[in-house]
Design a protein around this nucleic acid. Structure first.
Lengths: 409, 409
DNA sequence: AGAATTTGTTGTGCGAGTCACGGGAGCGAC
DNA sequence: GTCGCTCCCGTGACTCGCACAACAAATTCT
């Protein structure tokens, strides 16, 4: 969260520098590489100011000077030097906790996945067991990190409700977890003390798609995630919509059909009972223990069955409610909705067009994730990197160097 | 909209001053009067900086020095001088366009209603006719304004969909308007050229309740407005949720009962068909032409009928979907929902508790508007005042002095 | 090859907030 | 009543960040 959203505080010169340095880094992070001239026009600051900021970033070891990038201006004039994320710069650990597997990656600024590992996770496993597996994956992934590179933090994507204030997992239905302090568990298993951020997988999917996926330059977007549960991550005004407790986006339990099937939440006919993984599995006669691989199974289809087409219509109709409520510019369909939309896109579009109001409908686009199924993972990297954009100097000061040594000791 | 939300730009010193001056004014505006010491601790700036800012505000004629306010610190020590909104300071015109009447007020900083007038409006009247009535009311209300006081702008609350980019009224079902540039119509009728801002009534209700109503210090709130249509204004992270086009918050057409009554939007069983004014009027045998006064009629009841109780349950159940989606800290029930909640609050609460998820439910409070039925009007004043908080000097420079003279000439 | 264009570099200046000091205004104790 | 305490105001020197201007450097165009 950028400090600018804290309303009411004044700004002093120290804050300017922090903000400008962080904003510059955010730009370089977003584009991977840019020229100083681009930065000058993007940020609206003087050339010499940009030069000073870039110099500070270089002296921090975050960025390095590069030859002018490819897509640079054509024409006369001295070419502008490039600013590029440093090879041995700071990095974060991203964890995508799925229902049946955990993916862990070491991710550098610019969103580059430097190392990656994954392992199956016992469904309904105890939290400490899962924590131990994740810790082991983290050890693997940190193996080849340069000894000088600093670990800024760990970001974890969770399929469930995460409390914003402290990252407690309030409820992860498909892991059968309840009030689990998973961040603490992982840190304890590692024996490290670094900042850990947890958030809902759909929220992080939205964040990643906004930063470097299908929704770059789109400040109003919703990432609808079909995992075993159905959830949404909302970005509005370029910021995550979190809600008071951090639970915003629970679209799975929208009232859809009051005479429908009972839902595990206690109501009847929640949207999830129509478009959730179990409903779809039933529609395609998929055995219940394969529900976690629903996306792959759907990818195997080449022609949709009538039942699947009905599901597509229900998906579109539910999306209509969401479009009416949030008036997004883009809706990204993640998880198995990606596969489903590929199959029955026409039905989804029709359901949406029939049930949404004309005004919000005209400005919305349905899209597939630009990052494939990595969106939540890269979103986890983004929240872990966030402190660097708020205050690069402070975040780097708090970061951990020689992680391998510390893990060994 | 505070400039801080524009991400990506750098900050220079000029922007600091603008921001600090605007933020200081926003604080004084919110509290009406405060001491410099309070401002110092609120804004986290140095005493002398605050003194400089306050001095600038005074020299602009916006604020004036006052004796220490009542609620000041008790005990030893020199009392801190007060900062108070100036009597003859800048003001705005706020317009609340209802289905059957228009209310116009002259509102000063601090939210003080200085003058007020209203007139019935012909339902289904032509836009230019309504514009002429509103212009006449504005002339009345400007009558006694000090000749030195500056008019900063006009804010208009509209019962319909307003396009964010240019304030065009895309659709106001109950006025039967369609793509009406009402701001231009009013300005033409006045023969003035001042900034005009238009927004949806529920959005403005939320804004006003957030600034000086029931939801002060609540950064996640939803104002649910029952007028002839049902809409919502959402504030999240302290900012209005507008959506891509400005149409966010259309909760009236949430899918509620797919086998229900047909809705004018083309679907069946939208929430509005269950809790909208026409549904309630039917439930209490109120003649259709009195629908606009539904709140007063409901206030006349002392015992709710079973039909009304069922409506209360439906209201609560629909609110549950909203609470699940937005995870607000407070839901304010405006319009006739205020009267309805007073009658059948128990049913509303029960419907909400039954259908909302536990996590979002535990942090939400239902509340009545702290500003009564004036919320949209005062919200209209707030958007018109907004430029003053972004850049007081510029906004005052663009403001109009001697309005009466200009209107006469 | 020279002009035109665009950018990097350097030094100067302005402006905004901070800091430190002296003075002022109430409160409370003796 | 006076003194001390506490908190605040007001003023001037100080620091730091950005803007500006002039010059140097690196290309492209003619």
């Amino acid at each position: 969260m950028s400090p600018q959203r804290r309303t009411g505080l004044g700004t002093n010169q120290e804050a300017i520098r922090r903000h400008n340095l962080g904003t510059l880094l955010r730009h370089v992070h977003g584009a991977g590489q840019m020229s100083r001239a681009e930065l000058t026009s993007l940020m609206g600051l003087n050339r010499s100011t940009i030069a000073g900021l870039v110099g500070e970033l270089e002296s921090l070891g975050i960025s390095e000077r590069a030859t002018p990038p490819e897509g640079a201006r054509q024409g006369a004039g001295r070419p502008s030097a490039g600013v590029r994320i440093a090879e041995d710069g700071p990095y974060v650990i991203a964890v995508d906790l799925g229902v049946d597997r955990a993916v862990v990656a070491r991710v550098g600024l610019g969103g580059r996945v430097l190392q990656r590992a994954q392992a199956p996770v016992h469904s309904h496993g105890e939290a400490w067991q899962v924590g131990a597996s994740v810790a082991a994956l983290i050890r693997t992934v940190v193996e080849d990190a340069p000894i000088t590179a600093a670990l800024v933090g760990i970001g974890i994507s969770v399929p469930g409700l995460v409390r914003r204030s402290d990252g407690l997992i309030r409820l992860a239905p498909n892991l059968e977890w309840h009030d689990v302090s998973f961040g603490g568990i992982v840190l304890a298993a590692l024996g490290l003390d670094v900042p850990v951020s947890l958030a809902n997988d759909a929220d992080l999917g939205a964040l990643a798609e906004h930063t470097r996926g299908a929704a770059v330059d789109t400040d109003e977007l919703i990432y609808v995630s079909g995992n075993v549960g159905v959830g949404a991550g909302v970005i509005t005004g370029g910021h995550r919509l979190e809600g008071a407790g951090g639970y915003a986006g629970e679209i799975g339990h929208l009232r859809f059909n009051p005479n429908g099937r009972p839902c595990h939440c206690g109501n009847r006919g929640c949207w999830e009972t129509e478009v959730g993984a179990h409903a779809i599995a039933e529609a395609i006669n998929c055995p219940p223990d394969k529900v976690a691989q629903l996306d792959e199974i759907l990818d195997g289809f080449d022609k949709p069955s009538p039942a699947l087409r009905a599901t597509g219509t229900a998906l579109g109709q539910g999306l209509a409610s969401i479009v009416n409520l949030f008036n997004p510019q883009m809706v990204v369909l993640g998880g198995y909705f990606r596969s489903l939309y590929t199959l029955v896109g026409a039905e989804v579009n029709a359901g949406l067009a029939d049930h949404a109001l004309p005004a919000p409908l005209e400005s919305v686009t349905l899209a597939l994730p630009g990052l494939g199924s990595d969106s939540p993972l890269l979103g986890a990297a983004e929240i872990a990197l966030e402190p660097l954009f708020v205050d690069p100097v402070a975040a780097l000061g708090a970061a951990l160097v020689d992680v391998r040594g510390r893990l060994a000791g």
